[in-house]
Computed example of a mutant assay.
Amino acid sequence: MSSVKTCAASSVEAALPSSKRPGFKWLLGFILPVGLALAWEVAVALKWADGRLLPTPSRVFTTLAALAKTGELTNHVLATLQRVALGFGFGVAAGTVLGAVSGYWSLARRLIDPTLQALRNIPSIAWVPMFILWFGIFETSKVILIAVGVFFPIYLSLSGAILGVDRKLVEVGRIFRFSHAEMITRILLPATLPAYVISLRSGLGLGWMFVVAAEFMGAEEGLGFLLVDGQQTGRPAVILASITAFAILGKITDWLLASASARFLTWQDSFKPAE
């Protein structure tokens, strides 16, 4: 019986157009970047454009390979990953706690939300001089700056999601005399989980952005340091190599986070976009 099901599934998949096969869908995301890269390669090769200030992708990947061969790229990547991981962890913890408190208790929201909303509008680079004065130029100031960037989207999304929970669901919990813990775990948590997952991904993206500003603060290693070093030494290939590394690492970590959180959202009967 199982062999019959397997054959049937195989025949159905073979009958689908190639663009609708599960193994083909993830390749669609490569069409745009690969097409642009090939177009620039051709333009430079045919002398239609100058590749001095904007190196070709082949030259960028050659630079990445050279950095990887010497071990320099690995050191920079590990340093940046460590800072992002620590900053993301602290930012998520603070954003989750304060966002939940602000969304659930109106008194706490009146006390802390105006101040946090004002702080949210301060540009990231404006924190750099103060953090250097307070924490020095070592790892503490870098991690805190990243945590600040991660904190605000999580706080804002979670508190807003709690305030946006359907009032009828809350009334049902009160009718059944749910305790505060039961109200949170059985009503508020499932209702806010999709928005919370999106806020985690948004916070992670801002963490990757803030790490560049963090590594301007006297860093001796990291992709942000590599980027600045390429700018100061006039090596555009190194600059683009560090940007490419940021893009690849950011996409991989976002995919890992989205994949890990998807299992908690299997109950959703969500909208399916048209193929």
Rank of each mutant, 00 (worst) to 15 (best):
M183V: 05
F61V: 10
S58Q: 12
L206K: 06
A219P: 02
V42K: 13
R201F: 11
A66V: 11
L28Y: 10
M217N: 12
I248K: 04
T233R: 14
P123Y: 11
A43R: 08
L249I: 11
A15P: 00
A258I: 09
F271H: 09
L193Q: 08
L204V: 07
P190D: 01
S270E: 14
W208A: 03
T70M: 02
P194W: 07
F131Q: 00
W127R: 03
A45H: 09
T63S: 07
L145D: 05
I137E: 00
T96P: 05
L107K: 15
S19F: 15
R174D: 09
A213R: 04
A258W: 00
L111W: 10
F264D: 04
A181C: 07
S202F: 08
P273S: 05
C7R: 13
V97G: 01
K272V: 15
M183F: 02
G207L: 07
V148Q: 01
D50R: 05
F135P: 04
W48V: 04
R59L: 12
E275H: 15
W127D: 09
S58C: 12
T185E: 14
S199R: 04
L249K: 03
K69N: 12
G203N: 03
D50V: 03
S261H: 04
G224N: 00
K25C: 11
S199H: 03
Q232S: 15
I31A: 07
G234Y: 11
F88Q: 12
L32T: 11
T185Y: 13
T80R: 00
G91E: 08
L145K: 00
F135N: 01
A262S: 15
I132S: 05
E182H: 14
R201V: 02
G103F: 03
A247G: 15
N121P: 07
G222L: 06
I122E: 03
L200A: 01
T6W: 03
H76C: 07
P33R: 05
A219K: 11
L189A: 07
P129K: 10
L189V: 09
G222W: 07
I122C: 06
L257E: 06
S242A: 14
T244M: 03
R83H: 10
E41F: 05
T140A: 14
A195T: 15
L200D: 09
I132G: 11
W208Q: 01
D113I: 12
V150C: 12
E221M: 15
A274Q: 12
L111E: 00
K25S: 14
A241L: 00
V42H: 05
